[in-house]
Structures are given as C-alpha cells and as structure tokens.
Amino acid sequence: MSMTDTIHAKLTEKFAPTQLEVIDESMSHHGHAGWREGGETHFRVRIATRNFDGMSRVAQHRAVMDALEAELKARVHALAIEVLPAA
C-alpha cells in the first residue's frame, strides 16, 4: 500500500471525513531536506469532518498528527494540513 493510501485509510477510519484529499507533494520538494528517491515524503491533507467541531485549529492539527504518528516517525518528512468546513 502506498503512503498516500495509508494516510487516506487511517484518516478515514479515525475521523469519517465528509471530504478528504491526500496529495503527495514530494516531487516539488526534490533536493530539499527529508526528500528521498521514490517520493512519499511530503504530503498535503485537506480534510473536512464533524469530529473537529468545537476544536481549535491547533487541536485539529494535533488530532491529525496523532492519527499519523507512526507514518511521521517512519517515512513522512512534512505534512501540511488544511481543515475545511464540514458540510
């Protein structure tokens, strides 16, 4: 399973999002810190979920980071998080 698929599956299971995009931006970071051959190091997540209702932006981002703790420790160098309004 690719890292994109792993991130998508974990966030879907944890947060039941109404919208979720996992974008591998690794190639745009070629040669930067943390980049590795084959990519799967730099990601952007766009997520909308009712599970974040009432949470501060910091708490929302921490929840995503906690859900992806193993991936962040192992392979993912950078993660940009965009929390969208839940529909």
Rank of each mutant, 00 (worst) to 15 (best):
M1T: 02
S2P: 09
S2T: 07
M3E: 06
M3H: 04
M3D: 00
T4V: 14
T4N: 01
H8F: 01
H8P: 07
A9T: 14
K10I: 04
K14T: 13
K14P: 02
A16Y: 03
P17E: 09
P17L: 12
P17R: 06
P17N: 03
P17H: 02
T18N: 14
Q19N: 12
Q19E: 12
Q19F: 15
L20Q: 12
L20K: 11
L20T: 11
I23Y: 06
E25R: 08
M27I: 12
M27K: 07
M27S: 13
H29C: 04
H29Q: 13
G31P: 05
A33Q: 10
A33S: 05
G34N: 06
R36K: 15
R36W: 00
E37V: 13
G38K: 06
G39A: 06
G39K: 06
G39W: 05
T41R: 04
T41K: 02
H42S: 10
F43Q: 06
F43L: 05
F43E: 02
R44L: 14
R44C: 11
V45D: 03
V45Y: 07
V45M: 04
V45G: 04
R46Q: 13
R46G: 10
I47G: 03
T49F: 02
T49R: 05
T49E: 06
N51F: 12
F52S: 06
M55V: 02
S56I: 09
V58E: 01
A59P: 00
R62M: 00
A63M: 00
A63H: 04
A63L: 06
A63P: 10
V64A: 02
M65G: 04
A67P: 00
A67M: 00
L68A: 09
E69H: 13
A70N: 05
E71Y: 02
L72R: 07
L72T: 07
L72N: 02
A74W: 03
R75S: 12
V76C: 04
V76H: 08
H77T: 08
A78E: 08
L79G: 12
A80R: 09
A80I: 10
E82Q: 12
V83I: 15
V83C: 15
L84T: 12
P85E: 13
A86C: 04
A87T: 15
